[in-house]
Structures are given as C-alpha cells and as structure tokens.
C-alpha cells in the first residue's frame, strides 16, 4: 500500500469546528444564503468548504459514502484519520453522501428516514464549481421559497445536473421526508433543505 500523506485538518479544532457549524446552521436555516467556509485547506480534489464541512460533522458514529473522485485513498485516509468516520460502500446506509455535481449517485437510493423519524435521512454534500446570488455563465438560477426565506431568494449554481434540478423542482418525497442538500464550492457554502420550494428561472 502506498503511504498517503496526511494533511493538517483544522488549525484550531474547537474554534474552527464551531465556526463551520455556525455557517452550516445559518445556511440550513436560511436556504440559499451563501456563507464563506475556509477553515480547512483543499484536500486533493476536495474543496476547502467540503473538507471543512466533513471535519466539523463527521465522527466514528457517522457513515459516509464517497463518489468518484473523492473515493481516493488520499481523501478516504485523511477523513478517517481526522474524524474516525466510517466509510461505507452502500450508498443507501450512508448518513452523509459526498459527491461532485457531475458524479451524483442515484438519488432514489439514498436513505430517507421514515415518517416517524424523518431526521434519519441522508445529508447530501455536493461540490460544485460556483455558487452565487446573481446569474453566472452556464449556471442554473433557482428561485427559492419556504421556511428561512422572507419572500423569495435567488441562487445561481454552475453546472447543476438535470437529475438534481428534477429532484428539487419535483420533490418526489412527500414532506417530512426528503434530502437535505449542502452545496459547496471552493470556500463557500449554501444549502437547500427539504422544506425549500424550488423553481428554475
């Protein structure tokens, strides 16, 4: 086995984890709001926002499924070294799924929880190229409404795949079931939880 370089995780584990969490709490409770997230560095193909999120949320009690190209030795080894998280090969048992927008797993396979325990569903972490509150070239502009949004909010995401747009606009799982989606690009984060009604401009 090749020896894999271990990278530094958080510089200040307690403070950084708290700040990353507050940003995640902000975007999950106010969908479409964009927060910066750069407490950790880039980890191979993983952007700083995505690595920071993993460090803040994962531990030995959580199972994560990694899509190409994140299922590399370097990413897997660093994540399990820093967090002790359990890697799973079965996407349907993952608490967290980490993928790039162009490498989505089949969404209907992800854990949804049950009507009694809708919180037991999976959190989908999707790394994209760009996130903005104004239209970008080759981006999909989403109009968001629902809890956490006074009136409506617009969000532009670059190269958003068709399946994810279909999922968001069609909402195949009746509330309270559904996927909570965290979008990560470079050093920013936003989220679209299951309560958000999404239209494409």
């Amino acid at each position: 086995m090749n020896s894999i370089a271990l990278q530094i995780g958080f510089q200040e584990p307690v403070t950084d984890a708290q700040q990353v969490f507050r940003s995640l709490l902000k975007v999950m409770s106010e969908p479409g709001v964009i927060e910066s997230l750069d407490q950790a560095t880039t980890l191979e193909t993983l952007c700083p926002a995505a690595f920071s999120t993993c460090l803040a949320l994962l531990d030995s009690t959580t199972r994560i499924w990694l899509a190409e190209p994140f299922n590399s030795d370097a990413v897997a080894k660093n994540l399990s070294f820093h967090t002790g998280c359990r890697l799973t090969q079965t996407v349907g048992e993952a608490d967290f799924v980490l993928c790039r927008a162009d490498q989505l797993p089949q969404l209907d396979q992800l854990k949804r929880g049950s009507a009694e325990y809708p919180d037991r569903g999976c959190t989908l972490l999707v790394q994209v190229d760009q996130i903005s509150d104004t239209a970008l070239p080759e981006s999909t502009v989403l109009r968001l409404q629902g809890p956490g949004i006074p009136g409506q909010r617009t969000l532009a995401i670059s190269s958003l795949p068709r399946e994810l747009i279909h999922y968001l606009t069609g909402r195949p799982d009746p509330f309270p079931l559904g996927l909570d989606i965290v979008l990560l690009a470079d050093n920013v984060v936003t989220a679209i939880p299951r309560t958000t009604r999404v239209e494409v401009n």
Binding site: A17, M28, L57, P118, D180
Partner: peptide, 27 residues
C-alpha cells in the same frame, strides 16, 4: 474543562441534530 463544557464529540452529535431540526421545522 473543554470550551463550553461538553466534549467535541457530544457537540458534533448535538450539531448534527440541530441541522436536521432546522431542516424539518417543528419536528
């Protein structure tokens, strides 16, 4: 004692629960 008393693992567990709580308001 750790910052804010709780150990980091307990905080993470509560934080994950909070993220689900805001995603399912009132649940």
């Amino acid at each position: 004692y750790n910052f804010a008393y709780l150990d980091e693992q307990t905080k993470r567990m509560i934080r994950r629960a909070l993220l689900k709580a805001v995603a399912i308001p009132g649940y």
